[in-house]
Simulated scan of single mutants.
Amino acid sequence: MTVKAILRETDRRIAYRVAAWDPPCARCAMPAVGRAARHGKVWCFSAALMAGLGGRRGRTAAWAGLSAVGVAQVAAGVAVKPLTDRPRPPPRWVPRDIGERPGSSSFPSGHTAAAVAFAAAVGRTWPTMGAACALPAAMVALERVHSGSHYPSDVAAGAVIGLAAARLVHGLPPLRTPPSTGGRGAARTACCLSGLNPGRRAMSA
C-alpha cells in the first residue's frame, strides 16, 4: 500500500469514527456549534462585542478578523472548491439526522477556513481575544467532521487557508475603521464587506 493510500484510508477512518461518535453531550453541543457558524453569525457577533467594548484595539481586531474571514471564504469557496470534486463523506456514517448537506466539493472546509482566519487575525491584534476565539474555532472544525460534512483533511486544508488569509490581511497597510461609525457600525460594515451578513445566504462550505 502506498503512502498516499495509507493517508487516504486514515483520513476516512478518522472521519468515520468522529461522525459515529454520538454521546448525549455531542448531540446537544455540535448542532448548536453548526448553527452558530452558519452564515458567520458567531464571528459577526464576536466582532460586534470587540468593536463595542474593546475601544480602538477592539475595532481594529474586529475589522481585521472579519476581513480575514472574507479573504478565506473567497479563497476556499471561489478559488479552491471549483478545482476539486471531492464527494462528501457517506451519510450512512452519521447515526443521526443531519438534514440537507451542501452540494459543493468537500475539499476544503470553508467553515473551518473562516473560523481559523477570524481567530488568527484577531490574535495578531489582540492576543487575549485571539486565544478566546481559538476554542470556538476548534469546535467549528470538529463539528464539520462530526456532522459528516467533511473529512479531517478538508478541515486541515481549511485551517491552512484561514492562517494564510489572516497573514495576508495583516500584511496589508493598517486597517482603519471610520471614526464616525462607532464600534458596532464598524463591525457591521466589516460584516457586509466580508459577505457575512447573516440575512444573506452564505456560500456553501
Rank of each mutant, 00 (worst) to 15 (best):
V18H: 09
V18E: 10
V18D: 09
A19G: 02
A20F: 00
W21R: 00
D22G: 03
P24D: 15
A26G: 00
R27G: 04
R27Y: 01
A29P: 05
A29M: 14
A29R: 10
M30F: 13
P31T: 02
P31N: 01
P31I: 02
P31E: 05
A32N: 11
V33C: 08
G34T: 15
G34L: 14
G34H: 15
R35F: 09
R35N: 11
A37V: 12
G40L: 01
G40H: 02
V42G: 09
V42F: 08
C44Y: 07
C44T: 12
S46Y: 07
S46D: 11
S46Q: 10
A47K: 04
M50D: 12
M50Q: 13
A51D: 05
A51G: 07
G52R: 06
G52K: 03
G52S: 13
G55T: 03
G58K: 01
R59L: 06
A62L: 05
A62T: 02
A64H: 13
A64P: 06
A64K: 08
A64R: 13
L66D: 01
S67H: 07
S67L: 05
V69K: 04
V69A: 09
V71L: 15
A72M: 05
Q73K: 14
Q73T: 12
Q73C: 14
V74P: 10
V74A: 15
A76W: 00
A76E: 00
A76K: 02
A76P: 01
A76L: 01
G77H: 00
G77W: 00
G77P: 00
V78R: 12
V78L: 13
A79W: 09
A79L: 12
A79Q: 04
V80A: 07
K81S: 11
K81Q: 11
P82R: 09
P82Q: 09
L83N: 03
T84E: 08
D85E: 14
D85T: 14
R86T: 10
R86A: 11
P87N: 03
P87H: 03
P90Y: 00
P91L: 08
R92G: 09
W93N: 15
W93F: 12
W93L: 15
V94L: 03
P95R: 00
R96Y: 00
D97I: 08
D97Q: 10
G99S: 02
G99A: 04
E100A: 13
E100V: 12
R101C: 07
P102Y: 01
P102R: 02
G103V: 08
G103R: 13
S104E: 14
S105F: 06
S105N: 06
F107E: 05
F107D: 08
F107Q: 08
P108V: 05
S109E: 02
S109Y: 00
G110V: 00
G110S: 03
H111R: 01
T112E: 01
A114K: 05
A115G: 11
A115N: 03
A115R: 03
V116E: 07
V116S: 11
V116G: 12
A117L: 01
A119K: 02
A120R: 11
A121L: 02
A121I: 03
G123V: 07
W126A: 13
P127K: 09
T128F: 15
T128N: 15
T128L: 15
M129K: 10
G130V: 04
G130P: 10
P136G: 08
A138F: 04
M139C: 14
M139H: 03
M139F: 08
V140I: 15
A141V: 00
A141K: 02
L142F: 13
